[in-house]
Design a protein around this nucleic acid. Structure first.
Length: 739
DNA sequence: CCCCATGGTGTTTTT
DNA sequence: CACCATGGGG
């Protein structure tokens, strides 16, 4: 028997043993949220709820699996079989697949991933003849971003654009046209995108009583993790599944809301008790994860925040080392310093207990180079995903056509690789095939042997459906020669990926499910034996919900963290702040923040001075211990006290932990600040160029940066402004008030 | 109509 | 580095 009262603190116990009815658990970072959910699962099952009656919606499938495994360990191995767990999108697809007719489809829809959706938008734009030759016409990813955001926020496109893409407002009509064409395109070809999954499920549950009742009868308990990152339709889905007085447990933390960019709405947490009247509220505030010095820093970050439920985390963990603030000369030397730090840490922690976190996937490149040079194993999360690689998509396109012959994006992917077939012939061919115009098809085939073979192969594939793995094997046999030629430069690596795809496929009996899962959640790739030993590199977003003994966060400079894109709107900057909060709260014992003084800029081909992230600049003195890099490559304390030195990393590859051979570095005279990174160090603005639109030079005001001096006009509608304390910024005049 | 080469441009986060 | 527009040769 499980002793709930002994294993949990009072708040956790209250949540885990809550009976029927809605409950909201506001759980601070590291407050044992996962533990609470796991114990609740165990409690429900041990009280006689069949696992099939539980729906656990989490942010990733991995999180759902981990919670199930931990709960299964509590209640015994057989205890949780049959529980439904996964993401909203995954659950939506699984449900929709069972009721295609309710959506007006003859079969399960094919999921359009982001790249497919973007390409479709580009093609539709071309078909509509929009933006021809206009270099400032929004790019396909921008267009998809706007369309998707409008849908997720359930606002008009024009409204969203006024808020977030003011400079594109003149293209509002065109984007609206493309958006409408896109909707028709998806319907015509039996395709759904990520957003459709949620809205279609809502339509199904709302308008199709048998489906709704079946779902309600089945899922007597609904649990939702990371509730702060749900959007409006997701909240309504929860409501539809549970009913007003239903058994819902939502768990979340408003301070960790980091997905507003894709339509998440913190108000879901704040209005939970309106949506579910009488809902109980439980707060978990005691932190079990981090040491007090780390919490001092994260509490300071939270205090800078503009709004939100004020909370201070507390812990009873004894003092540990203060978080380090490490200043390096450049992003490249930052990579060296990070690697040196990792080697030092690896003396105290297993590599698997160390993580390097960053704002965007490409920020980690220099660190990856440095790790590869030393032969240190790492796993990277975020950035390009397995199923997004071109060769994987090539192979999957064949399978998609076997499942849905009208899947135009897949058709294009397959046939535009045939020599002599481009976009135009491909479109003609597709039309002819759907019209059943055999003559036109035969004519095209007569001229192109490879085309004929490809179409023939596709026919055969569709005629003999088998298990996904068998179909994939046939596809690879057919497509291998072509791919080998196309990807000649790194074929071995791609081939390994294709083999892995085969291994994944063999775990599925169903083609629909296989294809959907690949789109909806990248599978655990790698699977190498060194998995348990590897260092983690991750975007902060992908690190959500995870924790490590030691964490390094890199590139804490303006335009990177916070992202350059977050500088125009106050809400975006707040989200970046919460993102840093999430990053810092991943650390249990040791935390290091890295601030490079220069960043290599590919456009100019040179390193440019970088300004401190405003979040770092605003930290109160004393919560961090300052370190800096000397010109000779080592690190030294700079805020007084004992001076300690760290050896530079060894040159030759070798196992971690063998550092220390290179000797120490000469002491540096401590004390004064590093060369100021203020605007005066920036290269002077280019002069003598063509005169741009006359701009008012003088003073202006910005929502975030306050009053500043206009220094120069950069281009049409853009000016360079010097904000005291923030430095030089290039800003759209639309966001400024001129004095 | 297709294919390839060229050069200019902009680079977030995820289901 | 990927994406997009463009232009010349097949």
């Amino acid at each position: 028997m499980i002793d709930f009262a002994r294993d949990l603190n009072p708040a956790q116990y209250e949540a885990a043993t809550h009976g029927d009815g809605p409950v909201l658990v506001v759980a601070g970072a590291g407050s044992g949220k996962t533990r609470t959910i796991v114990y609740r699962l165990a409690h429900l099952v041990s009280r006689g709820t069949p696992p099939q009656a539980i729906l656990l919606l989490t942010f990733t499938r991995k999180a759902a699996q981990e919670m199930q495994q931990r709960a299964a360990r509590l209640v015994g191995a057989t205890g949780l079989a049959g529980l439904t767990g996964g993401t909203f999108h995954g659950f939506a697809y699984a449900t929709l697949r069972r009721h295609p007719a309710a959506l007006g489809l003859s079969q399960a829809p094919t999921i359009l991933d982001q790249a497919d959706a973007e390409n479709a938008l580009r093609d539709l734009r071309d078909e509509l003849g929009l933006g021809k030759g206009d270099r400032s016409f929004p790019k396909k990813n921008t267009i998809l971003g706007l369309i998707s955001k409008a849908r997720n926020k359930e606002r008009e496109l024009a409204e969203v654009m006024r808020d977030e893409a003011f400079h594109l407002l003149r293209y509002e009509d065109e984007i609206g046209q493309i958006a409408r064409a896109y909707t028709g395109f998806k319907r015509k070809h039996g395709l759904v995108d990520y957003d459709d999954l949620l809205f279609h499920l809502e339509t199904l549950l709302r308008d199709h009583e048998p489906a709704r009742e079946a779902a309600r009868r089945r899922f007597r308990h609904v649990m939702v993790d990371e509730y702060q990152d749900t959007n409006l339709v997701q909240a309504r889905l929860v409501r539809l599944l549970a009913g007003e007085a239903g058994n819902v447990m939502a768990v979340g933390d408003d301070a960790q809301s980091i997905y507003a960019f894709r339509g998440a709405d913190v108000r879901n947490i704040l209005s939970f008790q309106q949506m579910f009247p009488g809902a109980r509220l439980i707060r978990l505030e005691r932190n079990y994860r981090s040491t007090q010095p780390i919490l001092d820093l994260t509490n300071a970050l939270l205090e800078q925040a503009e709004q939100g439920i004020r909370k201070r985390l507390y812990t009873e963990r004894e003092d540990g080392p203060k978080p380090r603030l490490v200043r390096t000369l450049s992003d490249r030397s930052q990579a060296q310093a990070v690697v040196a730090r990792i080697m030092e840490l690896s003396g105290r922690h297993p590599l698997a207990e160390i993580a390097v976190l960053f704002r965007a996937g490409y920020h980690a490149f220099p660190v990856e180079v440095a790790l590869n040079r030393l032969g240190i194993k790492y796993r990277k999360y975020g950035g390009i995903r397995f199923s997004e690689a071109a060769h994987i998509r090539d192979a999957l396109a064949f399978l998609r056509l076997a499942q849905n012959p009208a899947d135009l994006p897949a058709f294009k992917r397959v046939l535009e690789r045939v020599r002599g077939v481009g976009p135009k012939s491909c479109a003609k061919l597709y039309d002819a095939l759907l019209r059943g115009d055999a003559k036109a098809v035969a004519k095209a085939c007569a001229r192109n042997k490879e085309l004929e073979e490809t179409l023939h192969f596709l026919d055969g594939l569709r005629a003999a459906p088998g298990a996904p793995a068998a179909l994939l094997a046939r596809v690879l046999d057919f497509a291998r020669p072509g791919m080998e030629k196309e990807y000649a430069d790194d074929w071995p690596r791609r081939q390994a990926g294709l083999e892995q795809l085969g291994r994944i496929a063999s775990g599925y009996a169903d083609l629909d499910a296989f294809l959907a899962d690949l789109c909806l959640e990248s599978p655990d790739e790698g699977g190498d034996e060194d998995d348990g030993q590897a260092l983690t590199l991750s975007t902060v977003h992908s690190a959500k919900g995870l924790e490590w003994s030691a964490v390094c966060i890199i590139d804490l400079v303006q335009d990177r963290f916070p992202s350059r894109h977050a500088l125009t709107r106050a809400e975006d900057l707040e989200e970046e702040r919460r993102l840093l909060y999430v990053a810092c709260t991943r650390a249990r014992e040791e935390l290091a923040l890295f601030v490079p003084a220069t960043i290599y800029n590919q456009q100019s081909g040179s390193s440019e001075p970088a300004l401190d992230s405003p979040f770092i600049a605003a930290l109160p003195p004393g919560v961090t211990e300052a370190w800096r890099e000397s010109y000779t490559g080592g690190l030294a304390r700079t805020d007084g006290g004992d001076v300690a030195y760290l050896p530079a990393p060894p040159r030759e590859p070798g196992p971690a932990g063998s550092a220390g051979a290179s000797g120490t570095l000469p002491p540096e005279d401590g004390g004064d600040q590093r060369p100021a990174s203020g605007p005066e160090l920036r290269p002077p603005a280019p002069t003598g160029g063509p005169t741009l639109t006359p701009t008012r030079l003088g003073y202006c005001r910005h929502k975030i940066f306050g009053r500043g001096k206009v220094v120069a006009a950069v281009s049409e509608g853009k000016v360079r402004v010097n904000f005291p304390g923030f430095g030089l910024k290039v800003i759209l005049s639309d966001f400024l008030e001129f004095e």
